[in-house]
């Protein structure tokens, strides 16, 4: 006795059609680890659930020449981890996706869902922002691509138009000497929502940082791309002074709230601490001696 409909279309077109037809009452089901919780506590009451896991493009990982990848929105964290090449080239993205929840959750939770849940604390998002990932979106009017940091509009809100579905992410080709890392602060060792999350992606040439991107989570209404921090790193040897400058930039970029998970002062300070640690890991992975 329920008025909810469950659909599991086999093609993206069908999915978009069904989702668009449902208007505001539709919900996309990827891993379901957020959606089912929201349905249970009554914050979400969908009329139509569109399960996208039967659609090949949304559930696969494809390599692009030069170290790039196209990752389906409904690929689970565990599937990302089990892709050896992806893990080697984009260790930060993979580790971020694998910090979402327990082993049980990792088998279900997806980067697409993490982004579309719209939480500023989603773990995979800062790593994807740092990675320079591009989001592939399909809607009634066709396909478009947009930088990942442009998708979140605020807590629980997205810059998507009616009927649009996130299909996947493109990770760009990777120059030699590149790597990434993601660290988050949680009070426990597992099972918590990030109090602060930090993703750093960088490229080293002879020890000098030639490119960098920094993503920060849980310190503002949306995940932030901190260009000031990246600028502090680029051109440096990632020495203490450069890291300090980038850390200060991260702290300065924070616009956090006091809540049950952390205080403004704490989040602001920790953002800087995490930047230094994350950048050091990324640099090591990129081959810094």
């Amino acid at each position: 006795m329920t008025d909810i409909q469950y659909l599991a279309p086999r093609t993206l077109d069908e999915a978009v059609k069904a989702f668009a037809a449902a208007a505001g009452a539709g919900r996309i089901l990827a891993g379901g680890t957020d959606l089912l919780v929201q349905m249970r506590n009554g914050t979400v009451r969908p009329g139509v659930i569109v399960d996208i896991k039967k659609i090949a493009e949304v559930t696969s990982i494809e390599e692009i020449a030069g170290g790039g990848f196209r990752i389906g929105a409904a690929v689970s964290g565990a599937a990302l981890r089990e892709h050896p090449k992806l893990r080697k080239i984009w260790p930060g993205v993979v580790e971020a996706a694998n910090l979402i929840g327990s082993t049980q959750i990792q088998g279900r939770a997806t980067a697409g869902g993490n982004l579309c849940n719209g939480s500023p604390a989603g773990d995979s998002v800062p790593a994807l922002v740092a990675a320079g990932a591009v989001v592939i979106i399909q809607g009634p009017k066709g396909r478009r691509e947009v930088a990942v940091e442009k998708v979140p509009a605020g807590p629980g809100r997205l810059n998507l138009t009616a009927g649009e579905i996130v299909v996947g992410f493109t990770l760009p080709p990777r120059p030699k000497g590149s790597s990434d890392a993601y660290l988050r602060m949680i009070p426990r060792t597992e099972m918590d929502i990030a109090v602060v999350g930090c993703g750093v992606s960088l490229t080293l040439d002879n020890g000098t940082c030639t490119a960098a991107r920094v993503g920060l989570g849980a310190v503002a209404p949306t995940v932030l791309l901190v260009e000031e921090a990246a600028r502090a790193l680029i051109g440096s040897k990632l020495d203490a002074a450069a890291l300090e400058k980038a850390a200060v930039a991260c702290s300065a970029a924070c616009r956090p709230i006091d809540d049950k998970r952390g205080t403004i002062a704490y989040r602001t300070k920790v953002a800087g601490v995490l930047l230094k640690r994350t950048a050091a890991i990324a640099a090591e992975r990129a081959g810094r001696k």
Partner: peptide, 11 residues
């Protein structure tokens, strides 16, 4: 392994 509370029966 998955949490069966976070999976729809229909799935």
């Amino acid at each position: 392994i998955v949490c069966s509370c976070l999976m729809l029966a229909a799935e």
